[in-house]
């Protein structure tokens, strides 16, 4: 028995004539934070919804905690929590009423008061749903995803529309969930977030799995070169820098010079050379590749429809 809590094999899902997911396979390990990223319309929500037993028709096979999302849908939903990218509850329901209502669906519900506290919504407990801001609604749905004390929590774009404070506090919450032994599957459009938070990240593009690994391995495999930037005066010639072992390219604009380096240690040589040339180093900047570079390298730079 391996330690996978989710196994997806060759998942294909159509909406009428749209092929939203086109043969995706991956598995999620118990206790990890698993990220799903990809351009708009890539199939992230569809994949998550299939796993979380929100669809009855798809092909391929999905196993979640030993259960089948179609035939064991209710049993499965007792053990997972899903925060949907878009959802609603009745406008005139107060938060505490909504939390009580959804608690009643689970045998071992968590204390909803504590959840509202954790998501900084306690002061709003007597407000109507319609009286919440966008970010507050999002946090309410995260709280609702946790209400059933789930083993796996699915968070679909859990930080879009949140302010920086709320994002940071939700990251902390997600790490806590993992420390409690839960598995977290999340989707996001913020690559810094995926890089910081996730143990592994799947990149989905056009309904297909384009890459899957830990952020650091993805970056070393697909991130490209580290870049070095500095401002230069008129008449600067970067030719001599390109001769250094490990410098892959030199681009010399009007007033900036950008170098791509494949070996970190060459940066010391660059600095020495610049110093010898009498270049000030005030503007000197090093940029290591990030998950964002991986994302753009893999999925391309065109805007999706």
């Amino acid at each position: 028995m391996d330690d996978n809590v989710v196994t997806v094999q060759n998942l294909v899902k159509h909406y009428k004539d749209v092929k939203a997911v086109d043969g995706i396979s991956f598995s999620v390990k118990r206790g990890e934070i698993f990220g799903i990223v990809g351009p708009n319309g890539a199939g992230k929500t569809t994949t998550i919804d299939c796993i979380a037993a929100m669809h009855r028709a798809y092909s391929g096979s999905i196993d979640v905690l030993g259960l089948d999302p179609v035939s064991d849908s209710i049993a499965l939903k007792r053990r997972i929590g899903l925060q949907q990218q878009e959802s609603e509850i009745p406008d005139r329901l107060r938060l505490r009423e909504a939390m009580e209502l959804f608690s009643s669906f689970y045998e071992k519900a968590l204390d909803w008061k504590m959840l509202l506290e954790q998501l900084n919504l306690w002061e709003k407990k007597d407000s109507f749903f319609s009286g919440l801001s966008g970010g507050q609604k999002k946090r309410l749905f995260v709280a609702m995803a946790l209400i059933g004390d789930p083993e796996i929590v699915f968070l679909d774009e859990f930080t879009s529309g949140l302010d920086p404070q709320a994002r940071i506090s939700i990251w902390k919450l997600v790490r806590n969930l993992r420390d409690q032994g839960r598995t977290v599957v999340l989707s996001t459009h913020y690559m810094d977030e995926a890089e910081k938070l996730c143990d592994r990240v799947a990149i989905i593009d056009n309904g297909k799995l384009a890459a899957l690994d830990s952020p650091s391995d993805l970056i070393s495999a697909h991130g490209g070169y580290t870049r070095v930037y500095f401002n230069v005066g008129e008449g600067f010639n970067g030719e001599s820098l390109s001769l250094l072992e490990g410098v892959e390219s030199v681009i010399n604009d009007d007033d900036t010079c950008a170098l791509e380096v494949s070996v970190r240690s060459v940066i010391v040589e660059i600095v020495k050379k610049l110093d010898a040339m009498g270049q000030g180093l005030d503007s000197f900047r090093i940029e290591a590749p990030t998950l964002e570079d991986v994302f753009l390298n893999i999925t391309g730079r065109e805007v999706r429809d």
């Binding site: 979380a52 929100m54 209710i74 049993a75 939903k77 007792r78 899903l82 949907q84 878009e86 959802s87 609603e88 509850i89 009745p90 959804f102 669906f105 689970y106 749905f141 609702m144 995803a145 059933g148």
Partner: peptide
């Protein structure tokens, strides 16, 4: 209206028939 607004979809995510 519940169906159109996605309220039923939220119910569907819970273990309720």
């Amino acid at each position: 209206a519940y169906r159109e607004k996605g309220i039923l979809k939220r119910f569907r995510a819970a273990p309720v028939a």
